[in-house]
Design a protein around this nucleic acid. Structure first.
Lengths: 332, 332
DNA sequence: TTGTAAGCGTTATCAT
DNA sequence: ATGATAACGCTTACAA
């Protein structure tokens, strides 16, 4: 097990100097085609692999992006992580992943670790809690960082915030329900004080009041179980509700299951729309109408903005929202 | 935006030499308590952060582990990725993630990229296809690598293979079904030529023949949709089957939904057991009995073995299998 | 077009 | 117990 070959070994094998090899590595146009080929051949011959740690010591970027995710097990965030990683890989960047499990302390620790590893930038879907300080280390290191989905630090210039256009999504969904003939539409799920909940609710409130109806809001956990409970709650306390916009698909699926158990026919007696368009939407009976947040597209957008920031120094403009889409299925 | 402080800056601020600072960094016991404190203080004062790229240039390990996942969107693998990342983080290692989307070519590319980034070792849940060569780059780099869940390279010494003890799991599940009074048990789902399928089937075949029954096997995709089709298939062609072990929970959930639509009562007419114990098991009606592969525990095991290999040079012993458990619920 | 030499921030080997 | 100094593998002026 001998040590890995370096550019010096390659240089020797190719009969050139190590600078030339370095130039070839960087695709410099000023090296002659002949020598370029020679060098490439030598590389293959000695089994050379580029050492980015060493390169990084001299030049700036490591080609590493830190990806901090509040809850990787949630399919919504998994989808994002997977999409972003693949997009960044296309551009030659690798992703160092930190799943922080909704733990602000863990988040702070992982951020420091990622900085030590020399990440060139951050994409953070942060945990709530300790809002003030958890991104501080990034600020001190002067690294570019984008907050996605959740905003825990208000310094927009340091940590620009980007999210899908939830408000439009909830507006579309609510209008869809009324257009289908619903007379009373409720909003179910989502913790009351969270910004995401406010946004996913805002379009609902807007349309509902526009149409002269009373809003009916039942906030709570964003879980399947809460959806089941919500079905009972509606049944007992709001029997006239014939349309529901749910905070997310998990809640919606739970609410559908719960309502069916109570004898209601989904898509007829009760129309249901979810949020996120997860795979489970296709596996329920009837299938669930949902607001798709276009996560792969969103990830691509984030990738693009991050690279622009890194390469051209252009931080993302504020207030950017990316397109969402209502996917209509049997449940409504 | 000035450059980041280095150990030299710290040394100056603390009035010691940079060697001393380095020793403090490495928790060397031979540095006096007083100076240690002084140095630590200086670090805080100047806002020092460790630069691992530089350290790596001299010493061996980068503290980076490459995690290559065939399909991160599959909750089973997500769970593994998240668990492993957190375990390794506890030990001071960071995870560089590559989701290769079941694409062998992508896999080869990402492996090279990870090597360039200087990962100290690999954990690979590989894509099928191009079995011969995709791990070759790792072999050439002489890096430790563990294959998990799937085995695509037979060189056990180079790439030891570890997986949960599927065989025992399927044995437990099958016995459970017969003990519940089933007279004909079928196995549904899983692509026919895959090692995983063979293993998840093996316990079923063993117990079934032990009990003097004919095995009934319907292989196919590991999807919800295939489960639905499987329900139809059983209904039409094997009407006497009263117990089913499915390749995984997705298939099982599809099979349950499909069978219910055909008027069969799950847990009575037809008993169903799945594999993986995903969250969806709790959300079906009735809830799904499943073989839990104990992924967090498995991830911990992998973490432990990887670190042993890295630190003590002890590669994992072969044939290691980790514990599984049958979680009994309403569906059986 | 290619070679020479000076760093980059650490760790490791000696001295002291 | 601490300090000086030479690597580590690469990039980047600058010189040839």
């Amino acid at each position: 097990m001998e040590r890995r070959p370096t550019i010096i070994d390659v240089a020797k094998a190719a009969g050139v100097s190590k600078s030339t090899v370095s130039l070839v590595l960087q695709r410099s146009p000023q090296v002659k085609e002949d020598t370029r080929i020679q060098v490439r051949e030598a590389m293959a011959r000695v089994g050379y692999v580029y050492n980015r740690s060493a390169a990084n010591l001299r030049s700036a970027s490591t080609g590493l992006i830190g990806l901090v995710i509040n809850d990787l097990r949630n399919p919504f965030f998994t989808e994002f992580a997977a999409s972003l990683q693949m997009k960044l890989a296309e551009e030659g960047y690798a992703v160092v992943l930190a799943n922080i499990n909704e733990d602000a302390e863990m988040q702070a620790k992982m951020i420091v670790a990622l900085i030590e590893h020399g990440v060139s930038g951050f994409v953070v879907s942060p945990a709530y809690g300790a809002e003030d300080n958890t991104l501080e280390a990034i600020a001190r290191a002067g690294l570019p960082a984008i907050q996605v989905f959740r905003k825990v630090d208000d310094r927009d210039d340091l940590f620009p915030f980007l999210a899908p256009d939830y408000q439009t999504g909830s507006r579309l969904a609510t209008e869809h329900l009324y257009n289908r003939g619903c007379t009373q539409v409720a909003f179910v799920g989502g913790l009351a004080d969270r910004a995401v909940t406010m946004e996913r609710m805002s379009g609902y409130l807007e349309v509902t009041s526009q149409r002269g109806h009373e809003p009916i809001v039942i906030t709570g956990a964003a879980s399947h179980e809460f959806g089941v409970r919500g079905a009972r709650d509606l049944y007992d306390n709001y029997p006239d509700v014939d349309g529901v916009l749910c905070f997310n698909d998990l809640v919606a699926l739970g609410l559908m299951a719960g309502s069916q158990k109570l004898g209601r026919s989904i898509g007829k007696d009760l129309r249901v729309v979810g949020f996120d368009n997860i795979e489970g939407c296709l596996q329920s009976e009837p299938q669930l109408t949902s607001v798709s947040c276009g996560i792969p597209g969103f990830a691509e957008e984030i990738s693009r903005r991050m690279l622009a920031w890194l390469n051209d120094g252009t931080p993302p403009e504020l207030g950017g929202r990316t397109a969402v889409e209502l996917v209509v299925r049997g449940s409504s």
